[in-house]
C-alpha cells in the first residue's frame, strides 16, 4: 500500500469513529429548555386554564398556580392576562431556599422537592411575580411545575391543553416549533425584565399596566 493511500485510509477510519462520537457528545450536551408563549390578544378570560390546573394539581382553594388578571382600559376594552410561575433562567427563588428544596432542572423547570421543604416561605418572598404560595394542606412551598408529570408522559401542561383559543403555546425553546417560530417572528415581552430573572414565559401584546 502506498503512503498516500495508507494516509487516506487512516483518515477515513478516523472520521468514521470521531465524527459520530462528536455529534453524540453535542447531543448529550443539548437538553430541552421548555418555555411558554401567551398571546394576550387571544385570551378572553374563560379561566379554563385555572380550573384545569387546579384539577390536575390538587391546588387548594384560595391558592393559584396560574391565574388570569383582568384589566379594563379607560376606553372600556377588557384585557385578560394569564400569569403563573415563569420558570426563570436565573430564578430569584432558588438561592434563598435553605435546604435546596427548590431547584432547577436541566430542561429549565423550577421545581420544589416536597421532602426537603421546611415551609419557611423564603422562596415565596423572593419571587417577584407572586407565583408561589405555601400549600396549606402540605405545609410546603408550591407553584406551577409546567405539569412536569404530564411532560414526562409526553403530554402538554393542563393549562395549555385546556385553553380553547390556543392562547398558550408551549414547547422546547431551542427546537423548531410553533413556540420558537412565533417568538422569533413577532414582538414579545416578558414580565418585570428589570429583575434580571430572565423569565421564560413570553407574552404577545402584554399591557404595561399589568407588568408590575
Amino acid at each position: 500500500m502506498s503512503k498516500t493511500s495508507r494516509r487516506g485510509f487512516l483518515g477515513a477510519v478516523s472520521a468514521l469513529v470521531v465524527l459520530p462520537a462528536l455529534s453524540a457528545a453535542s447531543a448529550v450536551g443539548e437538553s430541552k429548555r421548555y418555555a411558554m408563549l401567551i398571546d394576550v390578544d387571544k385570551c378572553y378570560g374563560c379561566m379554563a386554564c385555572v380550573v384545569a390546573c387546579a384539577a390536575e394539581n390538587n391546588v387548594p382553594l384560595g391558592s393559584f398556580r396560574t391565574w388570569v388578571e383582568h384589566l379594563v382600559k379607560p376606553e372600556g376594552m377588557r384585557i385578560f392576562i394569564p400569569k403563573q410561575c415563569n420558570h426563570c433562567d436565573d430564578p430569584p427563588c432558588v438561592p434563598p431556599c435553605p435546604t435546596g428544596a427548590t431547584y432547577k432542572t436541566p430542561d429549565g423547570l423550577v421545581l420544589v422537592n416536597d421532602e426537603l421543604c421546611i415551609g419557611c416561605g423564603a422562596c415565596v418572598k423572593a419571587c417577584p411575580y407572586g407565583a408561589r404560595y405555601i400549600n396549606p394542606v402540605k405545609g410546603v412551598a408550591d407553584k406551577c411545575t409546567f405539569c412536569d408529570h404530564r411532560l414526562k408522559a409526553g403530554l402538554l401542561p393542563a393549562c395549555v391543553e385546556a385553553c380553547p383559543t390556543s392562547a398558550r403555546i408551549f414547547g422546547p425553546l431551542h427546537e423548531v416549533n410553533e413556540l420558537s417560530k412565533t417568538i422569533n417572528s413577532r414582538p414579545v415581552q416578558v414580565l418585570k425584565p428589570h429583575t434580571g430573572a430572565r423569565p421564560q414565559i413570553y407574552y404577545i401584546s402584554l399591557p404595561d399596566e399589568v407588568n408590575r
Binding site: D90, P91, V94, P95, P96, C97, P98, T99, G100, T102, Y103, K104, T105, P106, L116, C117, I118, G119, C120, G121, I134, G139, V140
Partner: peptide, 24 residues
Amino acid sequence: LRSPHRAPLIFTLPHIVSTAANPG
C-alpha cells in the same frame, strides 16, 4: 415554619454551596 419537623435539614443539608441545580 410550616413544616418544622424538617427544620434539622437546615443543618444537615444547608444550601451554602452554589450548584447548577441550586444556584446561589
